[in-house]
Write a protein that binds this DNA or RNA. Structure first.
Length: 114
DNA sequence: AAGGTGACAGTTT
DNA sequence: TAAACTGCCACCT
């Protein structure tokens, strides 16, 4: 490694997001932490924004902030589309917040560490 | 080419 | 206690 920062942060983020099972959700910070840059949670959100430019279907609706709040719902075309998708997977959302968030939380650091 | 932006999170004042 | 600042790194103009 001669200082070559070939970090495809976005691709790594998308790869993790695609591994999130239906009915589960995770946070930006959890993904960033899994990638080794827990302070880069903002980039994870930005990667979600860029996910629209990808041909691959990124389940961005399974990624919320650490409060379980659907902060990115505004980027799904329709404001309620994110909530609909989550509810369609069995996740109950109330007032833009995931009910029983910790019960549906999927930590890549743990699940992918096996 | 350089600067500003962004769907967060943690720390400090 | 709550509010504000900083860190982080790729993408867009």
């Amino acid at each position: 490694m001669t200082g070559r920062s070939s970090f495809h942060f976005f691709e790594d983020v998308w790869d993790v997001v695609k591994l999130i099972p239906a009915g589960k959700v995770t946070s930006y910070g959890a993904i960033a932490s899994y990638l080794g840059s827990k302070q880069s949670s903002r980039m994870v959100g930005f990667a979600m924004n860029a996910s629209h430019t990808r041909k691959d279907s990124i389940p961005a609706h399974r990624v919320v902030n650490r409060n379980g709040l659907l902060t990115g719902k505004h980027h799904f075309g329709e404001p309620d589309l994110m909530q609909k998708k989550l509810e369609s997977e069995g996740i109950l959302v109330k007032n833009d917040q995931i009910v029983d968030f910790s019960n549906h939380f999927w930590d890549p650091m743990i699940e992918l560490s096996l």
